[in-house]
């Protein structure tokens, strides 16, 4: 591959769009989306990095991505629960 890998551009763009979104968006749900964009960009970058090995993709970055996805999704789910709670604080048990 001699030219510029389009996916490298996409990874950099996803990270940059995510950071921009985090800076300019006020709503927490939009900020959470922006953070996930950064995460997706980083995962894409890791997958590109994994392709450098001559004999098959490098499993170490792949494992990092899998771990990262699960952490990102569980943290996002927690963030969404916080957003739901923030939107309707009056009902629901406060135990």
């Amino acid at each position: 591959m001699t030219g510029f890998d389009p996916f490298a551009l996409a990874a950099a763009g996803l990270i940059a769009f995510g950071l921009y979104g985090f800076c300019v968006c006020g709503h927490p749900l939009r900020r959470l989306l922006a953070i996930n964009l950064v995460g997706n960009g980083v995962f894409l970058a890791l997958i590109l990095i994994a392709r450098r090995l001559p004999d098959g993709p490098d499993p170490v970055p792949h494992a990092m991505v899998l771990t990262g996805i699960v952490i990102a999704v569980s943290a996002t789910a927690f963030g969404l629960a916080l957003i739901r709670r923030q939107a309707r604080p009056e009902d629901g048990g406060n135990d």
């Binding site: 985090f22 959470l32 990092m64």
Partner: peptide, 12 residues
Amino acid sequence: LLGSLVYLAGVA
């Protein structure tokens, strides 16, 4: 979350 993903980008 943002901090740790920025960190992870550096690690990559």
